[in-house]
Each structure stands twice: as C-alpha cells, then as structure tokens.
Write a protein that binds this DNA or RNA. Structure first.
Lengths: 330, 330
DNA sequence: TTGAAAGCGCTAACAT
DNA sequence: ATGTTAGCGCTTTCAA
C-alpha cells in the first residue's frame, strides 16, 4: 500500500479511501490511484484488513482434517456461498496428535473475531464453545446442544436400512455398532433396535457386536457374528467402513454375498460403489448438510432470526448388490 | 491476550514470551501463565500473529472454487502436510464472475507475505505471478512456465486410452477434444494423434470434433460423430464429462455400448464408476499431485534445492465396461 | 526476570 | 479533498 501511495504521489489513507470507495476523494484522484493499483496488481492484505475491521466478508469452515466427509461438506458450503459476495476459508490445524482434543475451540479462537465473520464447525466433539460470532455445527458428535447444528437423521437412516432387510425376509439380522460415545452411533443402534421391535422381533444381544467405526474392531465383530453357531443372514453395519470389512470377512469365510449373507452399510462413501459386490447402504446428504449450514450461518451473520437452529436432514437408501432375500436352505 | 495478562497479573509481553517459549521468564511464571491460558482456553489470533511475524507455519491452497478436482488436491496436500507441524488453509475467492480472471494473483497477494508461508495454486490460468514466497502450481492450464509445477502426463494418458482401443481391434476411432486454449486438452489430442500414427493409422479429421470440456458442446460433437455416414466404432473423449455425455447420446441413438460403440474417457471422476455402463477411463493421480506439490513446497520453504521443479505424474488406465472389441458385423 | 514501547499493514476519526 | 494519527493483537527489541 505504501508502494501504491508513493507511486501515485498521495498519502496512504487516500489509497485506502479509494479502495474502500469512501467519500472525500476527487474523481480525478480516484482514477489515478485506481490505475496505479491495477498496474501494480495490488490487493489489500486480508490479514491486515481483518485486524482492523470487525467485518471481513469471509466465512470459515473449520475441520479437524481434510478427509472425504469434511471436504464434501466444504463443497456444499461453497455452493451455498456462491453469489453471496463472501469468500471462503477452510482451516485445519493439521491433525497432529496433540491438536486432537479441543481443536474446535482452538481453531475458533484463532480465526473468529478476525479473519472470519462466522464459522462452520465440521463434526466437532465439543460444542460448548463460545465465540464472538455465529457458529454452526455440522454433524456434531455429541448431538445438538448450544450450537446451531445440521445433522443427518441417523435414527431414520438406520431404520431404513434394517427395514429393507426385514422386507427382504430377513429375521436374523446382526449389527456391528459404532463408537459408543458418539451420538450418531447411538442413534444408528437405536434405529436398528426400533426397526426390529416394530417388526415384532426380539433383539438377540449376541448379534450386536461393537465395531467402534474402526476397521480392525469391525473385522473382529464380523468374525464373531459369522462364526456364531446360528449366524445372522444379514448384517447392518454402523458405517460403510465396517460394512466393507464385513464383505472381506465374508469372502474369507467363503460366504457368498448376497446369496448367503446380506450386508447394509451407512454413509455411502465413494468406495462403497466400487466394492465387490457394490454395497447397499444408507446415504447421508453431506453436501446438503454443508449448504444448509452455510445458509443458516449467512442468516445468522445478517442478524436474521433463524427458526429451526437444529436441523435434521433425511437420509436415503441406496440399493446396490450386497442384499438379497435369505436363502431358505441356509 | 490482555485478559490472560490481567488474570495472571503480568504484562502482555510476558504472556507472549511464555507462549513462544522465549528465554527470560522464570519457571514459576511460566507455570502460572500456562495455567491461566489453559483455563481461559486462549489461543493466539492467527491474524495478529501473521501481521507481526514473517513466518506463520501455515501453508495455503488457493483455488478458484471448491469442486471435485480441487478438493481432491486438497486432500493430497493435507496428507503430505501431516506431521510437518504446518497448518493448512484453503482459500477460494468465491467464484464470483468478476473474480474469474486473475484470481490467482489476487489471492496470492491477499494471503502471501502474511497468513501463509507458501502456497499451492490449483489449476491456475496465469502462471507468471510473483509472490514473496514459494508457490507451486498444480495442473497449470498453460503448461509449466516460471512456476514450479506438478501435472499429470496428459500425453501419455491419451496414448494409453487410445492404445487400449487399438489393441482391442478398433481402427476407426473418433475424438471429442477439450478446450483448445488449455495445454492439457492440447496434449490429450496430441496423444490421440500420436497413438494413431504409431499404429500406422491416418487421422480422419472428420472424426475429431471439438467438445470444449463442455457438456453441451460435447453432446453436439457426439451427435456429429455418431451420425457420420461411416461412424467410428470407438470414441476417445478428452474428459469424463464428455465421455458420459457420449454414453447418453449413444443410448438415445439406440447404440449398445460397448457392443456397437466403445467409449474411453479421461479423469476418472467418481460419476464415471457408476455410469451405465461404467466408464473405462484414464485416471489422473489427483491426490498424488497434491502430495507432490506439498512436498515440493515444504522443501522450497525450507530453502532446500529442488531438483525437478516441473514434475509430471504418470496416468493409468481404469478398465471398466464401456469398451470392447468392435463387432465385425457392424 | 520483567515491562514499556515500537511497529507489522491497514482503516477511521480527526485535523488541515 | 487530502493528510495525520491512533490503534487493531501480537512479537520483539530495549531499558529497568
């Protein structure tokens, strides 16, 4: 900015006024300074500007790490932001081990109040944060709390998946559960139990094994289920990763999917479509979640009243080739 | 920071010293201040710190928009950054129309020199930028120029795709080309021509139609090719989007793919795996490109000499169901 | 060992 | 219409 001022032969503040379109500058000066700016390819430093201004016109997406889920949310947010005049910054503290716990609060204090006018927090574990600006949580791990939030309907999704199996004629349906400290996992298990109950079926606790959203734990759980003296004819996994592992275990044991075993997952990650066989799964509308969160955030920033601060988006069943009616013979 | 200082009964500068582990503070004071910091959940503002320091320990990924390609690069960069101690910021000016041209320079001047120590520029059109820090371009549209860059081997990829068709026995192979102002598109066309030439085949210019990487143009091109009096038995499309459109046109015309027409795409976007039929295509190692770019950037920031500043990564053929030998009858 | 003061690039209130 | 000055939150001399 100094360069521009020197080059144009005016003061720094005049340049600032030109850039920000403030009154009190002659049209002539505006022209001249504008030309110099263009010639030098100057653009105000986002940082310096943020430090001085309360408003930055930037919204932030704070993530623990850039993985498939968070980047999908990011795409949704970007779509919703288009044409709003806002810029977008996605921030990850880098996923180092020490940064694990409390990354939400840390990231928030680092960016909010400067740099960003509001933030979307993706899959936070802690939601009792307070920041000096609007914050919307996407898929909070501990459920809707103080923070406005957008999440998928895990309960309904799980019922969808299990009901599909029930309709196919399965009655002995096992489940590989998720991380018990996460609300999403609890709800998926609850949906499983509710669907069975609604069908008048009793839950055989021996068929509910912990998978912890973890491939190795899930592998163990799948082995246990399939080596049960009276094994299930279908397995509902709390996430696709666990379902994919179940597919592998079934292959190891020489079980034909879907003829001898049906498998339903949850998430619909890209890998599921190209699995062998392609996985039938419950899809979360991740992009939509990002869009809704961004819409909500924009409204919050604009000071508008937001009616439903805890939104739940419907999930849907994606039918592929890992499910079929049970074979009477088996 | 004022709060912390007040709470701890010390000066602001002492707090700063504690945070940055500077010498000249008693162990006792360090302990006390650290406790207060933890209790208040304080974290230094990234912005204020950037403004003062030359070094920020943050690297930036600058994109025009958050779409599938750029987010895939982002994932690769994130992987490479893990454990390096760097934080990651991805920035998009928002994709508004006025920001279209020259977004690379603008973003760069906005963020570099403050906020980020170095940047990865994704698919820039302009590469003659100069910033006061290292910059690496991923898949620059105009080819390797001044900027260090990482790109896929478009030439080799195109040959791979066309050679697959040739090996299957096709001799009448059409092409839907890409945006002629983009190097990647030019190279893909060149690869097509070279592969045919290497097979001793002459290129029938009537079978090379412009698709511009645009669905509508591509649709038109596909229609022209397939309504040719002597239509090709196979089509190589410059990108998956065009190939997918070609599949649609073939279906409209009642052509069976791959029995009556083989189609090969380029990119391997997720949609291609679930197309009908699943598309055989040339895959770009997008994640790897992000990783390589990040590795290079890190080395550049560390002041290390980087031998190969223009890297080209090999592409590979993904065989799916849209190709087959030509039917002698047709 | 600690604190006071200057300054990073910018904007806004104020003075000319 | 233009320039001067203070200060955003932080780090870093430098002095106490």
């Amino acid at each position: 900015m100094q360069q521009v001022a020197a080059e144009a032969g005016v003061s720094i503040s005049t340049v600032s006024k030109v850039i920000n379109g403030r009154y009190g500058v002659s049209a002539e000066t505006v022209d001249h300074v504008t030309q110099v700016i263009d010639r030098l390819g100057y653009e105000a430093s986002l940082v310096a500007r943020s430090l001085r201004n309360r408003r930055t016109n930037v919204i932030g997406v704070l993530v623990m790490d850039f993985e498939p889920f968070s980047t999908e949310v990011l795409k949704g947010v970007a779509e919703a932001i288009h044409g709003s005049g806002y810029e977008l910054i996605a921030y990850s503290a880098g996923g180092h081990v020490e940064a694990q716990v409390g990354w939400e609060r840390r990231s928030l204090t680092r960016l909010m109040g400067s740099l960003v006018d509001g933030a979307v927090l993706v899959t936070p574990t802690v939601t009792d944060v307070q920041a000096d600006g609007p914050v919307v949580a996407v898929d909070p791990h501990t459920g809707p709390s103080g923070l406005p939030s957008v999440a998928a309907d895990n309960l309904q999704g799980a019922r969808l998946g299990v009901e599909h199996l029930l309709r196919s004629g399965h009655t002995r349906i096992g489940m590989i559960t998720g991380r018990s400290d996460l609300l999403s996992a609890q709800q998926r298990e609850q949906g499983y139990r509710e669907a069975l109950a609604a069908a008048g079926l009793r839950v055989d606790e021996a068929l509910v094994r912990p998978g912890g959203f973890d491939p190795e734990l899930a592998r163990e759980a799948a082995r246990e289920l399939l080596s049960h003296p009276e094994p299930p004819t279908a397995i509902f996994a709390a996430n696709d990763l666990s379902a994919l592992v179940t597919l592998e275990v079934a292959a190891e044991l020489g079980l034909d999917v879907p003829r001898q075993l049906s498998v339903v997952g949850f998430d619909n990650i890209p890998e599921s479509a190209v699995a062998d066989p392609p996985l039938t799964t419950v899809q979360q509308p991740i992009r939509r979640m990002g869009q809704e969160a961004a819409d909500m955030l924009l409204a919050l920033i604009a000071g508008e009243a937001v009616a439903d601060v805890h939104r739940t988006l419907a999930t849907s069943l994606v039918l592929r080739a890992s499910t079929a009616p049970p074979t009477p013979a088996s």
